[in-house]
Structure formats: structure tokens, C-alpha cells
């Protein structure tokens, strides 16, 4: 299995590649006034309006810096039985490498943060620890409905 690595603060995190649609360069986003915390804005991804979450803002409270290596990862977060794909963008820093891993390499972190259900298991590579992020759990269900409704309306507009 493949893990797409990004950095937030001093720590390294990973997103599982199986649900990733594409990694695109940092582009200008449409700012959404009164957007929920951690939402960077809306991205025009090949004609589809996609809400983009700032992982750096979510994980450290500091928005992602504008760098070449700061990129937007497009992930399919739709449930298994959903007919249409639900795409969510994740802005993150230092999105430049991947790691091949096996499920048994992962260890349970042992700390469950109530506010952050998306923090997953941890694995060790040659440099440091990498914590896997569950992209589907980044947004709470209630907010997800709002977000996608927003995106849908934007698409209609």
C-alpha cells in the first residue's frame, strides 16, 4: 500500500493513496466567508467545485504557507454505496514523497483525541514517525452535509 506523505509543523503525516484522485499544484481558491474552521476555500477542479480543507490549519492552527511543495490532494470521500463521487480537497505542506507500507507496519497511537477522529495509526520509517490521516473523518457528518450542499449549490450556480 502507498502512503502520500505531507508535513504539518515539525510532524509528518500520511494519506492512503487508494482513495486519492489526484495531487494538483496550489491554485487560487475562492474564499468562503464565515467558512468553518480549517476550510481553505473552493477549488475549480476540472470544472467541478470542490471544497478544500487546510490540513495544516486543522493540525497546528497555522494555515499552510504558499510554497511550491504546498499542494492540494483531491480525495474521494464518498461512502461505498454512493453513486456520485464526493471529492474533497486537502491542502498540505511538503507533499513531495510517498512511502510504500503494509498494514501490519502500523501501530495504534494509543491517544484518542475526541475532537480529531481523523488521526489514525502510526508507522515508523527511516526518518521519523508518520501518522495516517483518515480523510473521510476530517469533517464531521453534520458539516459534511453543509459542505457538500454548498459545493452542489455552487455547481448549480
Amino acid at each position: 500500500m502507498l502512503l502520500l506523505i505531507f508535513q504539518s509543523g515539525e510532524d509528518r503525516y500520511g494519506l492512503d493513496a487508494s482513495r486519492i484522485i489526484e495531487v494538483v499544484p496550489l491554485a487560487s481558491l475562492k474564499h468562503v466567508p464565515h467558512a468553518p474552521e480549517g476550510m481553505a476555500g473552493l477549488l475549480n477542479y476540472r470544472g467541478t467545485i470542490v471544497p478544500v480543507m487546510d490540513l495544516s490549519a486543522l493540525l497546528t492552527g497555522t494555515p499552510s504557507r504558499a510554497r511550491l511543495s504546498t499542494r492540494i490532494v483531491l480525495v474521494d470521500v464518498s461512502p461505498e454505496d454512493s453513486p456520485a463521487p464526493r471529492i474533497l480537497g486537502f491542502m498540505a505542506e511538503r507533499v513531495t514523497e510517498t512511502i510504500r507500507y503494509r498494514e501490519q507496519d502500523l501501530q495504534v497511537s494509543g491517544v484518542a483525541v475526541p475532537g480529531a477522529p481523523y488521526l489514525g495509526k502510526i508507522m515508523l520509517d527511516q526518518y521519523a514517525m508518520v501518522q495516517r490521516i483518515d480523510p473521510a473523518a476530517v469533517i464531521p457528518e453534520s458539516l459534511k452535509a453543509t459542505l457538500f450542499a454548498l459545493a452542489k449549490e455552487s455547481n448549480h450556480d
Partner: peptide, 21 residues
Amino acid sequence: IVKVANQTNLLSLNASIEADK
């Protein structure tokens, strides 16, 4: 050059992801 290298890195990332799929 840096931009091209960055683009190449991005493309190789997407290629890795597609290859994994």
C-alpha cells in the same frame, strides 16, 4: 528549472498513486 522539477515531482506523485491503484 525549479518549477519544472516541482512539476515533475507532482506528476511522479500522481503516477505513483495511479500505479498503486
